[in-house]
């Protein structure tokens, strides 16, 4: 199949990129656009490590075709702060010890961001529900939940 020229708006920047239809958004973000903060773990929708935000909703980039998300607002972890200047949510993750190996972290942060953007003062249950699709082996999740609640408090 021939490559198609598609336009992807990632973190506010419009990229024009040639891709065949069978490329997932995850592959295009990582392999062609260099957004390696989006992690490639299970690749079949089981773990949430590749979570990105599209039009305000957390979705899995491993199950999304790149060609079908043109004209949409795609946010990856790179849209938030960088290592020197983390945004408030990322800072809460760091301060609360919600980061260990860090492989689930970008997806986890984005699931949390999608929640807080929509619901700045979530209940505990809403926090848990928002990250229930993001697996973490290191932390046991308690500090992740704490970090998101901490960010919600600091945001208010």
């Amino acid at each position: 199949m021939l490559d198609q020229l598609i336009h992807l708006k990632v973190n506010g920047t419009l990229h024009t990129v040639a891709v065949p239809p069978h490329r997932t958004l995850l592959e295009v973000l990582r392999e062609q656009l260099g957004y390696t903060g989006t992690k490639r773990a299970c690749r079949v929708g089981d773990c949430g490590a590749c979570t990105v935000i599209i039009d305000g909703k957390a979705v899995l980039s491993c199950l999304t075709l790149a060609v079908e998300v043109q004209e949409k607002e795609i946010l990856t972890i790179e849209a938030l702060g960088d290592g020197d200047r983390p945004d408030l949510l990322q800072q809460s993750f760091v301060d609360c010890g919600a980061v260990q190996c860090g492989f689930c972290t970008p997806g986890m942060v984005l699931s949390a961001k999608a929640l807080l953007d929509e619901n700045p003062q979530p209940e505990r249950e809403e926090v848990r529900r928002a990250i229930a699709g993001n697996l973490c082996r290191c932390t046991g999740y308690a500090k992740i939940v704490e970090a998101i609640e901490d960010a919600a408090t600091r945001l208010s």
């Binding site: 929708g45 979705v59 529900r129 928002a130 699709g133």
Partner: peptide
Amino acid sequence: VSAAQLQNM
């Protein structure tokens, strides 16, 4: 169903 991301998709 599944979790938030899958419900969004």
